[in-house]
């Protein structure tokens, strides 16, 4: 299948933080996300802990179960094995780091159960 990831994950992509600062995707740090979310009126950062990683019926995909936020709401997402998530204090991580590096040139750690990923939710769900 044509399994192209969004081009902003490609090494060298220019990312604009909420304060206007430009950084390359591979240079982003946990603080960049936290500070950008602080500025945002609508978005907030939530911690999403990887609870399970299962294989999918879709080739080259996995189903990742997260426990999201303080209420530990269970959320499942199906993504390609090379899809990178940003792990708190660790950086980009995917289920198949070799493939991520091969396809995107983005250095990745191995995403594992127990890792806490940065995710977004709305500040007010009312």
């Amino acid at each position: 299948p044509s399994s192209a990831l969004p081009s902003y994950f490609m090494k060298g992509s220019i990312i604009q933080l909420a304060d206007g600062e430009l950084k390359r995707v591979e240079d982003l740090r946990t603080e960049d996300f936290l500070q950008s979310a602080e500025v945002s009126k609508e978005l907030k950062i939530d911690s999403s802990t990887v609870e399970r990683i299962d294989s999918s019926r879709t080739p080259d995909a996995v189903i990742i179960q997260f426990s999201v936020g303080e209420h530990k709401v269970q959320v499942c997402v199906e993504v390609l094995v090379e899809y990178p998530f940003f792990v708190f204090g660790q950086g980009w991580s995917s289920c198949c780091p070799d493939r991520t590096t091969q396809l995107l040139a983005l250095s990745c750690a191995k995403l594992s159960v127990g890792d806490v990923c940065i995710s977004l939710t709305l500040k007010s769900l009312r």
Partner: peptide
Amino acid sequence: VPVFPWHSLVPFLAPTQSD
């Protein structure tokens, strides 16, 4: 050169809360 907003890179995992 395209510039992408920071939040593009973060998955939006929105739980449906009932409280």
